[in-house]
Computed example of a mutant assay.
Amino acid sequence: MKIGFVHSGETINDNSFNEMVVVGLRKLQKERQIKVLPRKGGFSLDATVKAIESLLDEEVRVIVVNGVPVGNRFGEFALDHTDTTFILNDAKIDGYPNIISIDYAHGMGSCLVGALCAWQTKTGKVGFLGANQMPVVKEFLAGFRQGVEYSGRDVEIVEKYVRTDVSSKGFEDPELANSIAVCMYSGGVDIIYAVAGLSGNGVIQAAHSTGNLVVGVDSDQDHMAKGSVLTSMVKRMDIAVYEEGLAVLDGNYVSGCKSYHLSNNGVGLSDMKYSRHLILPGVLKKLDELKLKLVSGKVKLNSSVE
């Protein structure tokens, strides 16, 4: 049995978005003796379709795709290949019998990040460094802002982007991200939430070199600069891809949109095993309380990503 994986960007080795999926696929590979065929999908529909077509030529009938750029236009493509099941990460595409579309509650996880950063900052100034200004990045920002507000502290948010439009290059320029982060730290920011894929690695390096803190994203990046990464907002794409892939292999999958959030461990903060000694007394308890309020709906997130 073969499973294809069309990763976003130029590299599968990003310590972030793509590598998290690889963890889930490796687990499937070990348990079911499947062969995983990776392909570079870039960030455009044309590149994604080209990568998928190369897998179809090899008669791959289960394909995982990271980041589908154009929504329901992909659905039209899927209808031409109904003998193939597609598992799409970070997508909201419904109504197609051969598409499993996985949406992650970025806002929920980012709300926890915002509160933690606001409670931990010593300068009263925290940063958000996004890859670009596309809606999914703004979704992280909206949750982050609400977490800072929830903290009850008067904290300034400095908002920057690796690319100031929707250019996909913002996800793959760690050198520029490093330079921007150093400037943010020089300006009084002491914690940066980096939502930038591979570019985030440059922010982690900046935090380590300047003696400040950073929050990683997608995978658990705490080990990349022990003690400099305060926490990571982990998207459990490994769990989602494993569970949905297993259902497909067993022939009992359900198509449509699936939501992975706080209550089913789809998103959440890392264990902070290298930074726990930095956490102020009472903060972890307050984070647990906020998590419960988010799950119960007592704290409602603003859906706006303006």
Score class of each variant (00 low, 15 high):
residue 4 G to E: 12
residue 5 F to P: 01
residue 8 S to E: 12
residue 10 E to P: 08
residue 11 T to G: 00
residue 17 F to R: 11
residue 20 M to I: 10
residue 27 K to M: 01
residue 27 K to Y: 00
residue 35 K to L: 11
residue 38 P to G: 09
residue 42 G to V: 06
residue 44 S to C: 03
residue 49 V to Q: 09
residue 51 A to K: 04
residue 51 A to S: 14
residue 55 L to M: 15
residue 58 E to K: 15
residue 59 E to V: 07
residue 60 V to I: 08
residue 73 R to D: 15
residue 85 T to R: 07
residue 86 F to P: 14
residue 89 N to V: 15
residue 90 D to L: 08
residue 99 I to D: 06
residue 101 S to A: 13
residue 102 I to A: 05
residue 103 D to Y: 09
residue 110 S to F: 10
residue 113 V to H: 03
residue 114 G to V: 03
residue 117 C to K: 01
residue 118 A to K: 10
residue 121 T to M: 08
residue 123 T to W: 05
residue 134 M to Q: 13
residue 139 E to W: 10
residue 141 L to H: 12
residue 142 A to D: 07
residue 154 D to Y: 04
residue 155 V to K: 08
residue 156 E to H: 12
residue 156 E to N: 12
residue 157 I to T: 04
residue 158 V to Y: 05
residue 164 T to P: 08
residue 174 P to H: 02
residue 181 A to I: 04
residue 186 S to K: 11
residue 187 G to C: 06
residue 189 V to R: 01
residue 191 I to V: 09
residue 193 Y to R: 02
residue 194 A to P: 00
residue 196 A to E: 05
residue 201 N to Q: 11
residue 202 G to M: 03
residue 205 Q to T: 05
residue 209 S to F: 02
residue 211 G to H: 11
residue 215 V to L: 11
residue 221 Q to V: 06
residue 221 Q to R: 14
residue 232 S to Y: 06
residue 233 M to T: 00
residue 234 V to F: 01
residue 238 D to F: 00
residue 243 E to A: 08
residue 246 L to N: 05
residue 246 L to F: 01
residue 248 V to A: 06
residue 249 L to T: 01
residue 258 K to G: 10
residue 261 H to D: 11
residue 264 N to G: 05
residue 272 M to D: 09
residue 273 K to G: 03
residue 277 H to S: 13
residue 278 L to V: 02
residue 280 L to E: 10
residue 293 K to G: 08
residue 295 V to R: 02
residue 297 G to M: 03
residue 301 L to G: 05
residue 303 S to W: 03
